[in-house]
């Protein structure tokens, strides 16, 4: 279960202590599944883990998950694509996904080889990643049978900072992720996962008036974190920040991978918190989005 905290004014410039991480984790749980967060109290990590277990035992009847088919992984490009995917979702789809803790399945695959059978709600221009859903798990069962979970034993790379600009949505909210495209006839054709959107021209989005793009830093903890795990954390942070309005089209995000976020005191607008694998009785900040910061 993801444990990302979102904007909270009181959190600005507060060091990332266990107390802070714990508060952030529970805040997110309360926001998404308040009935489960309250059930076991919020006293300690055990209560948090118990709440997670309850969520696993009693998944939301309307649970949905997105599917990302990964051909290549470039961290900066991923941030851009994940934000654009989330910003393109219809409000009701976004709400359902939020309630499912923005669960996303990462599969190894080449979207270009799948286009005859499946279509994607978003396809990166370079074909490096294709997105489906969010939708009930059964709608992507065929795709998941065909592909394998994205695997890597390598640690998340610590490279130079990389700034990306969040693109404008490709369509107005409300019509994305609902189209279907018939698969070609022939043996082996699988039912489509939900969602099939052909390329569409950029159109103005309904809803709140767009604000001017801002710049934020996006930190990822790399030490001891394999690529697939870092991808999960980064993805949750980015898509939830986009769904919550922290990231909007035109924003500039500077991805900074660092060994750890220990000691960070930047005013964070969102945090991704989970159990520390090597110290399972402690929480760790795996990714963080800062408040607005000047460009370098």
């Amino acid at each position: 279960m993801p444990l990302t905290e979102e904007r909270h004014p009181a959190s600005a410039s507060v060091p990332l202590t266990q107390r802070r991480l714990h508060a952030e984790a529970f805040r997110r749980l309360r926001q998404v599944r308040p009935e489960l967060a309250a059930a076991g109290g919020e006293s300690d990590l055990a209560a948090l883990l118990a709440a997670r277990a309850r969520i696993a035992e009693r998944p939301d009847a309307d649970a949905v998950q997105a599917v990302a088919v990964v051909r290549h992984f470039d961290p900066g490009a991923w941030v851009r694509e994940a934000a654009a995917f989330a910003l393109d979702l219809a409000p009701d789809t976004a709400a359902a996904w939020r309630r499912s803790f923005t669960r996303t399945v990462f599969l190894a695959g080449n979207p270009a080889n799948l286009l005859g059978r499946y279509s994607f709600d978003r396809l990166a221009e370079d074909g490096s990643v294709g997105w489906c859903g969010p939708a009930p798990a059964e709608s992507s069962a065929g795709l998941r049978r065909l592909l394998k979970l994205f695997l890597s034993t390598a640690a998340f790379p610590v490279g130079p900072p990389r700034t990306v600009t969040v693109p404008a949505p490709t369509a107005g909210r409300g019509d994305c992720g609902t189209q279907r495209q018939a698969p070609p006839p022939g043996p082996g054709a699988e039912p489509l996962p939900r969602g099939a959107a052909p390329p569409r021209p950029a159109v103005p989005r309904p809803g709140p008036p767009p604000r001017a793009g801002v710049h934020r830093d996006l930190y990822v903890a790399a030490s001891g974190v394999p690529v697939p795990e870092a991808l999960v954390h980064l993805n949750h942070l980015v898509v939830e920040a986009a769904l919550d309005g922290l990231i909007t089209p035109g924003d500039r995000l500077t991805l900074r991978s660092v060994p750890s976020l220990t000691g960070a005191t930047a005013p964070f607008a969102a945090l991704r918190v989970d159990v520390d694998r090597t110290l399972p009785d402690r929480l760790r900040a795996f990714a963080a989005l800062t408040e607005e910061t000047p460009d370098d």
Binding site: A108, G109, N110, N113, L114, G116, R117, R145, L146, L147, K148, P187, G188, A189, E190
Partner: peptide, 9 residues
């Protein structure tokens, strides 16, 4: 990768 032909990765 023969997923183009409906065969699993």
């Amino acid at each position: 990768d023969l997923t183009r032909h409906g065969l699993p990765l």
